[in-house]
Each structure stands twice: as structure tokens, then as C-alpha cells.
Amino acid sequence: MNRRGILLVEDNAQDELLTLRSLRKVNLANAVTVVRDGQQALDFLFREGAFGGVPAGPLPAVVMLDLGLPRVGGLEVLARLRSDERTRLLPIVILTSSDEDQDRLRSYLGGANSFVRKPVDFAEFAETVARLGVYWMAVNESPLDGGQP
């Protein structure tokens, strides 16, 4: 199990609840940090703004990023993370209600590692989120693992 956590960027409280419930089913709920908009996500990752005083820790194993976010949008967050040396290789999964081709294409072009649509059907949704969590936390070897002191 990766000692790094999951950063969930989700503005919809119900989706947050359902996501956390799904992750809890696979025992990953404790590793999850939730921020509710893009700015918060950036502040958290770069320890800026509200997170300026929080001591620096390891980057999360994966960022689950919604696209339709208040303040700074998901694609903007993706671009800022990929343009920064520190987060250039950070695994980012786009988790969104949109199944627009444009969104998918832009996400991959922006450097997203995965694009996953949130199914309307809850059972499907729960399963998808659970698999994602397990994959990124347990299966995948992050490019950042070896390089972190």
C-alpha cells in the first residue's frame, strides 16, 4: 500500500460523499484529502494560501480532479500542475460527469493520466471509484516514488 494519499478535488458535496463511501468500501477512505475547488487544490499541492502553514509532505499518489470546478477550473488546474517542475509527473485522473469528446481530448492533451466518466448509476459509480482507488494506490508505481527523499 502506497503511503501517499489521494487528493480528491470535488465541489459537489453529494458526489464527495458517494466517492468517499465507495473508497471506504475498499479501505482507502483514510488516505483521502478533499479540496472543493481548483484554487484550493493548487494551494494544497504547492503549500500556498490557506495551506501555506502546513508542513511539506509527500505529493499524493493520485489526484482525482473534477472538471467543472468553481474559481479555477479543472483543466486550468491540470495545466498549472503540468507546467510546474514539482508536479509535472504527478498522476492525475480526471473524474467528471462530462462525456464530451472535447473535454476528454483536452484532458489528455493537458497531460492527464486518465479520463474517467462518473456514471449516473450509483453501483457503476461506486465500482469505478473503487477500482480507481485500488489501481492508483495499490497497483500503479508512481514515477515519484523513487525520487522522493
Binding site: 453529494q14 467543472g68 460527469s97 456514471p119 449516473v120 448509476d121 450509483f122 453501483a123 459509480f125
Partner: peptide, 21 residues
Amino acid sequence: AYAVSHDLRAPLRAMSGFSQA
């Protein structure tokens, strides 16, 4: 349409999700 695809789905997911939960 974008709003529909994004924003109408979330409440539906909530209805369906919490019903299932």
C-alpha cells in the same frame, strides 16, 4: 447542453446513489 450533461447528472447520481446506499 454542457450544463445538462454535467449538472443534471450529479443530482441524479445522488438520488440513485443514496437510494442504493
